[in-house]
Design a protein around this nucleic acid. Structure first.
Lengths: 335, 335
DNA sequence: TTGTAAGCGTTATCAG
DNA sequence: CTGATAACGCTTACAA
């Protein structure tokens, strides 16, 4: 950090006191037009940049939001992009910390790093091996303002994707195209809350349309790729065979499609396949995958705004505000 | 930012001066074991956390590295993850800024934001509509220590993927499996430097193996998906038909595979397809795509280390150091 | 309408 | 081995 020009330099050049310079900078208090002129000019000429550290120290206020992520997956990063854009408008910056996620103890390590950074607030992308409870305790204990990013486990009002609604909409769409035996592939364990929400959406939709429910459990202990392959195996044993299937995720869907097509099943003629996420790769699947698009943009934006409110001790938004954000359907060639 | 306990508090509790507390904290100067004991205990008990802002202000030193990115693509983010991990070890933090990239004027806007953050150094993921020259000028003018992240356009020694070597290795592999008519699909314009490096690697390899060079230019004015479809069209007109093809990228490869398979061409029996990047989606392609894996981890790490050196005014590493990092081959089922 | 000066939490100089 | 104290650049109460 090279020594930059400061308030005092400006004051000298403009022949006024630092207080006056501060006044024109922060637009508070009266300054004669003439003086303001002089000062503004000096600022321009010397290329003055305020020192964030001095400012934060004096104001006893931080202007950064720390984000903790265990992944660099496009879906999560899209949320961060929106978040950063939102807070930047209010002069906050985003410092990103990756959670090594090797052991539960890493939460403590990350907490330590968080403390060292003196953030105004913290946003957490919760990791799959649920450290949620642990995070909550630590975060509260530390007194940080925080929010989880799209965590189905958060018990506060952290904004999240309305997965139930998303799947409901998708299954309803499938039904509207005349499909009558719509299967669901996903997790069924009640401990897997992101899975529970999806499953609920499916159940709700088939029930409402008086369709049978056909559930193919997915193995969570192997990679998505392997799970998709395994499920394809199960799928082919089903009689009568479903004419549509709602998948837990795009990755699962792509693996599944790959496997059943190899076995001679045609998509979408024989069976329609619907994903969930809308990854970039969904476009490049064979055939291009219809899917439920996660509302990443909106989510990131809302989280940013909520965090700023928390920092300023304001209440959450107007009445009736819900932390659930509805996904949108993207129909391509697999349905 | 809640008012935390500070040096003075510790000093009072431990019954010593702040200077002494600082001495044990920063491990400089002599402190009697007894005093150190007392102080350490007080620090523990009060849960003392140093104030980063005060520290940076006093030391006239920033401990953050700002990263500018126009994308949230997994490939780039993997680099950032490695970068963050590397600098964290040295107590630096990473603040991430997204480049809106709506117009060239945005570079100025981002520069402004950069200034407001007083970073110790800056890392840029250069955007495709080459603002490289502009960035360089601005960054120099501002006096920032900086490095481009994997930019083929950087004229300094910013670390980058050795694309030429990567493609060379891949084509050589293709040849080693007995393929004799290996085509290349990619950009040919000399203005597209990332493309030039790849093309050069291809040319070098086929020449060395006394194989014919067959080049299919790819359209850069449409999406990768469309480009892949178009190239597939061209490909089918070729006689005799190539028995292998090296692709500019995974996305292009996936689109291409999708199209030619639809037309009855078998992969890898009729033609082997090799990608470039190793996206997550490459695994899920039909068939799983063999590809050149970008050395994202190494790259991020090296950039982090180099940036720290720059900050401390040290020279770049030992002699013979090269900014080019060699990718690795990942062989799956498409070759 | 403008100026003086204190103080934020560190670090580091200079004495003791 | 330890302690006063100034200084970093900014904000802001209080005067003038």
């Amino acid at each position: 950090m090279k020594t930059a020009t400061n308030l005092k330099d400006i004051a000298e050049v403009a022949n006024v006191s630092v207080r006056t310079v501060a006044r024109v900078l922060n637009k508070n208090g009266y300054v004669s037009t003439e003086t303001r002129q002089k000062v503004t000019e000096a600022i321009q000429r010397l290329g003055y940049r305020p020192n964030r550290y001095a400012r934060s120290l004096r104001k006893q206020q931080s202007f950064e939001i720390a984000v903790v992520s265990w992944t660099y997956d496009e879906i999560h990063m899209e949320k961060l992009r929106a978040l950063e854009t939102a807070i930047r408008k209010r002069d906050y910056s985003m410092t990103l910390l990756f959670d090594p996620m090797k052991s539960p103890a890493d939460v403590n390590h990350v907490m330590e790093e968080l403390h060292n950074r003196n953030p105004a607030a913290v946003a957490i992308i919760n990791r799959p091996p649920l450290a949620e409870e642990l995070w909550t305790v630590k975060l509260n204990e530390a007194g940080f303002a925080y929010l989880f990013i799209d965590s189905e486990y958060a018990r506060d009002n952290s904004p999240k994707t309305d997965r139930q609604q998303g799947i409901f909409d998708a299954v309803e769409y499938l039904a509207s195209t005349g499909r009558e035996r719509i299967a669901y592939v996903g997790t069924v364990e009640s401990s897997q809350k992101v899975g529970v929400a999806r499953l609920r959406g499916y159940l709700q939709a088939v029930k409402q349309h008086h369709l049978p429910d056909i559930i193919l459990p997915m193995d969570t202990h192997v990679s998505r790729w392997e799970a998709g392959q395994a499920v394809a195996e199960e799928f082919r044993k089903l009689t009568p065979r479903p004419d549509a299937v709602q998948m837990y995720s795009d990755e699962l869907a792509m693996s599944f499609m790959h496997a059943i097509q190899k076995a001679g099943v045609r998509i979408p003629e024989d069976v329609a396949v619907m994903g969930f996420d809308d990854r970039r790769a969904a476009r490049y699947a064979s055939p291009p995958l219809s899917t439920v698009k996660q509302p990443n943009e909106e989510l990131g934006k809302v989280i940013g705004e909520l965090l700023l409110r928390k920092i300023n001790g304001e209440d959450p938004p107007e009445e009736g505000w819900s932390p659930k954000i509805r996904p949108r359907l993207v129909i391509r060639e697999s349905t």
